[in-house]
Design a protein around this nucleic acid. Structure first.
Length: 604
RNA sequence: GUUCCCGUAGUUCAACGGAUAGAACAUUGGUUUCCUAAACCGAGGAUGUGGGUUCGAUUCCCGCCGGGGACACCA
C-alpha cells in the first residue's frame, strides 16, 4: 500500500478523505528541503491517542539520532518547512512539536465539519477507498470445506472471516471473485467409499439422514484406516480408482458431493454467504498432468520414494537436508493427485483464466506450512515458465479449541453443531427482544432475534485478532453486552429512532449544518473521520478486528453524545448539525456492520 | 527432535518500535418527569521469566518456563 503519493480530492472538493495520507505526503515533501532529513524520510505518521492529537509523526526521533541532531530542534525545522510549503491550512489542522520530538496534528472543528458535509454516504467512501485496491482483480478462496461432514462450530471461522475479508476487499475497489474451493477429490473420499462398501450401505441422496449417515460412516472409516495400515492402503486404492474414472466410484462420489453441497448451502444461506464460483478440487482433475509435466520440465520436481516432490533448499525446514523431511509432495506414489497438485493447478487456472492479480486464501493456521510451500513452488514455477505470479496471501486464523484445550475435530467426540449454535443464539436473542420490546409483532421479533443472534456470533469471532486461538464457550459466542454486535446494532437503532421521532428519513434535516461545537459532538466527529484510518488498518493485513474495535469506539462515542446532547431541540442550527452527526453515525455504523457481514436493524 | 503460533487486569481481548499499556465482562458507586436504560458517568485492578538491541520494548533478538499446532504421500 503506497503511502505519500499525494491525496485524492474528489471533484475539486476541499476536505481530505484520508487526512493521514495527506499529512504523510506533505511531511515527505517538506522533509526534502530539510538537510538532515532528505527525500527518503519516513514521517511514521500514525493515529494518535486522542488525548494528544488526531495524528502524530514519530519519524523525526529516529532521524535525529542518525543525524546526531536534537530531535525537538529537528522537528521544529521540519514543521517550519511544512508551513513554508503552503500545503497546510492551519485553520483546518493545528500542528505542534510535542514530547521528545513528535509532531502532533489535530483536526479543528472546521476540518471535521467539512469532512462530515462532504463524505456523506457509502458511495463517497467507496470512491475514496477505491485508491486502495481499485482496478485489481482478486480471487478469494473460502470457505472451502471438506465434503461429507456436518457443519460444526469449527466451520464458523472460515465462513465469517472469509466473508468479512471479502467484503472489505470489494469495498476498497477490487474486482472480486469468491471461489469456494471445496475439498472433494482427496483421500477422505477413499476412506468414505471404503467405509460405505464395508458396511454394505446403500446411499440414498434424498434421505433426510443422508449427511448424518455419511458422517457416521466417515468416522468409522477414519478410525479403521488409522488402526490398520492395510485398510489405509485400500482407501487410497479406492481414491485412485475414482481419480482414474472408475464408474461405480464416480457414481457414488457424485451422490456424496450432492448430499454434502446441499447441506452446506443451508448453512451458507443463514450467513448470507454467496460464492461466485464453486471450483472444487475435482474441477482440476484433468489439469494436474500439466503441473507435473511443467514442474519436471523445469527441474523443480523430482522423484522421491516413488512420489513426485519439490524441495526448497533455501528454507531449512523444506530442504532435502532437513532432519525431518518435509517435501512438497505434488503427486503420490500411486499416481494420485493430492492437495498440493490441485492447489498448483488452481493457482495456474486463477492466474490464466480468472486473470487474478491477487489471490487470498482463507484457511486455518495449521496449513501455514502448506501455503508457504505452495507459494515458494508457485513463484519458481511461474518464473521458470515466464508467467506473472499473482500476489499470494494466506489469511490464516487460529483454532477453536474444545474444553480440553485441543482443537475441535469431528473425530474427537462431537463438537457443537453449527445449526445448534445458530438456533441457540436466535432463541436467546428472541427472549431478550421480547422482554425489551414486547409491543413489536412476533414476526418482527423473530426476524430481529435472527439478526441479533447471528450478528453476535459473527462479531464474537471477528472482534479478536484472527490469528489467536480461542476456546469454545457458549457465553462468549452468545454475549449481547459490551463489545458485541448487539451493542453496535442498538446504537444504530437509537439513531434511526431519532429520525423516526422527528418525522424525517436518515439524512434529511441537516441543510446548513455547521461545524461541531460541544465536546461530545467534537469527540463523535473525530471518531467518524477516523473511519478511513480503520479501513486502512483492516485492509493492510486483512484483519477485521481493527474495524470491530473502531465500530465499538464509534458506538461508544455516539452513546456519550446521545446522553449529553439532545438532538431534537428548538434551535434549528443546533438541530441541523446534530442531525448531521446522527446521519453520519448511522451511515458509518451500518456500512461497517455490513462489511462485517452483520445486517443492521431499524428497531430492536 | 525440528519448526510455527501464542503467553497482557479475576476473565475475554486491544495496543501498525513511541507519550500516563486501552476496552469489555465480572466487582463496586452513581444516572431515567427528557430522542429505545440492550444505554450513560465514575472507582479499583495487568505486560510469564532472565538477558540483549534501542533515545525509547507488550512489540525486535537470544535463553528458560508454560499452552497449542505442523512435520512423506489428510485437506
Amino acid at each position: 500500500m503506497p503511502r505519500g503519493r499525494g491525496g485524492i480530492r474528489l471533484g475539486g472538493m476541499s476536505a481530505w478523505f484520508n487526512p493521514a495520507r495527506e499529512l504523510d505526503a506533505l511531511l515527505r515533501q517538506a522533509a526534502a528541503s530539510v538537510p538532515a532529513l532528505g527525500a527518503g524520510f519516513n514521517p511514521e505518521l500514525k493515529p494518535s491517542d486522542p488525548r494528544h492529537a488526531d495524528f502524530q509523526a514519530n519519524g523525526v526521533l529516529g532521524a535525529a539520532k542518525q543525524a546526531k541532531a536534537n530531535p525537538r530542534a529537528l522537528a521544529t525545522q521540519l514543521l517550519e518547512a511544512l508551513r513554508a510549503g503552503g500545503g497546510l491550512d492551519e485553520r483546518l489542522v493545528q500542528v505542534e512539536v510535542a514530547g521528545p520530538g513528535f509532531i502532533n496534528f489535530k483536526l479543528t472543528p472546521a476540518a471535521l465539519g467539512a469532512w462530515l458535509r462532504e463524505y456523506r454516504d457509502e458511495s463517497r467512501w467507496r470512491a475514496g477507498a477505491a485508491r486502495l485496491m481499485g482496478g485489481r482483480k482478486v480471487v478469494i478462496d473460502y470457505p472451502s470445506p471438506n465434503t461429507a461432514k456436518q457443519m460444526h462450530v469449527g466451520h464458523l471461522r472460515p465462513i465469517v472471516i472469509g466473508e468479512a475479508v471479502a467484503r472489505l476487499i470489494e469495498f476498497c475497489g477490487a474486482d472480486l471473485v469468491r471461489d469456494n474451493h471445496i475439498g472433494d477429490w482427496g483421500t477422505n473420499f477413499g476412506v468414505l467409499i471404503l467405509a460405505i462398501r464395508r458396511a454394505g450401505f446403500q446411499l440414498d441422496a434424498k434421505s433426510p439422514t443422508a449427511l448424518e449417515d455419511l458422517e457416521r460412516l466417515y468416522k468409522e472409516g477414519s478410525a479403521a484406516t488409522k488402526a490398520d495400515p492395510a485398510l489405509m492402503d485400500a482407501a487410497r486404492a479406492e481414491l485412485a480408482k475414482l481419480q482414474s474414472g472408475d464408474l461405480a466410484n464416480s457414481a457414488l462420489w457424485k451422490q456424496i458431493v450432492e448430499v454434502s453441497n446441499a447441506a452446506c448451502q443451508r448453512s451458507y444461506d443463514q450467513f448470507g454467504l454467496k460464492t461466485d464460483v464453486i471450483l472444487g478440487e475435482s474441477f482440476y482433475r484433468d489439469k494436474v498432468d500439466q503441473v507435473y509435466a511443467e514442474l519436471a520440465k523445469h527441474g523443480l520436481a523430482e522423484e522421491s520414494e516413488g512420489a513426485l516432490v519439490v524441495w526448497h533448499d533455501e528454507e531449512p525446514r523444506f530442504s532435502r537436508d532437513a532432519e525431518t523431511k518435509m517435501p512438497f509432495i505434488v503427486r503420490k506414489k500411486d499416481g494420485s493427485s493430492n492437495y498440493a497438485s490441485t492447489d498448483l493447478a488452481t493457482l495456474l487456472y486463477r492466474a490464466e483464466h480468472l486473470k487474478a492479480d491477487e489471490i487470498v486464501y482463507v484457511t486455518d493456521g495449521r496449513q501455514q506450512d502448506h501455503f508457504h510451500q505452495l507459494f515458494l513452488t508457485g513463484a519458481k514455477w511461474f518464473k521458470a515458465s515466464g508467467r506473472q505470479l499473482p500476489r499470494l496471501r494466506h489469511v490464516w486464523f487460529g483454532t477453536i479449541l474444545g474444553e480440553d484445550g485441543k482443537a475441535i475435530k469431528t473425530k474427537s467426540g462431537d463438537p457443537v453443531r453449527l445449526q445448534e449454535l445458530i438456533d441457540e443464539a436466535a432463541a436467546k436473542a428472541f427472549e431478550a427482544v421480547s422482554a425489551k420490546s414486547p409491543d413489536l409483532p412476533e414476526a418482527e421479533r423473530r426476524a430481529i432475534a435472527r439478526a441479533v443472534g447471528v450478528g453476535a456470533l459473527r462479531y464474537a469471532d471477528l472482534s479478536s485478532n484472527r490469528t489467536m486461538d480461542y476456546t469454545f464457550s457458549w457465553s462468549k459466542l452468545l454475549a449481547f453486552e459490551g463489545n458485541t454486535a448487539p451493542y453496535l446494532m442498538y446504537a444504530g437503532v437509537r439513531v434511526r429512532s431519532i429520525f423516526r421521532k422527528a418525522g424525517l428519513s436518515v439524512g434529511q434535516g441537516e441543510e446548513g449544518a455547521d461545524d461541531p461545537v460541544t465536546p461530545a459532538e467534537i469527540a463523535l466527529a473525530r471518531k467518524l473521520v477516523a473511519f478511513t484510518a480503520a479501513l486502512d488498518q483492516s485492509l493492510e493485513e486483512l484483519r477485521p478486528h481493527h474495524l470491530c474495535t473502531y465500530l465499538h469506539e464509534l458506538a461508544s462515542a455516539y452513546g456519550a453524545f446521545y446522553a449529553a446532547d439532545s438532538v431534537i431541540v428548538d434551535d434549528p442550527a443546533v438541530k441541523a448539525r446534530r442531525l448531521m452527526l446522527c446521519a453520519r453515525t448511522s451511515a458509518v455504523l451500518e456500512c461497517g456492520l455490513r462489511l462485517l457481514g452483520i445486517e443492521p436493524l431499524e428497531r430492536m
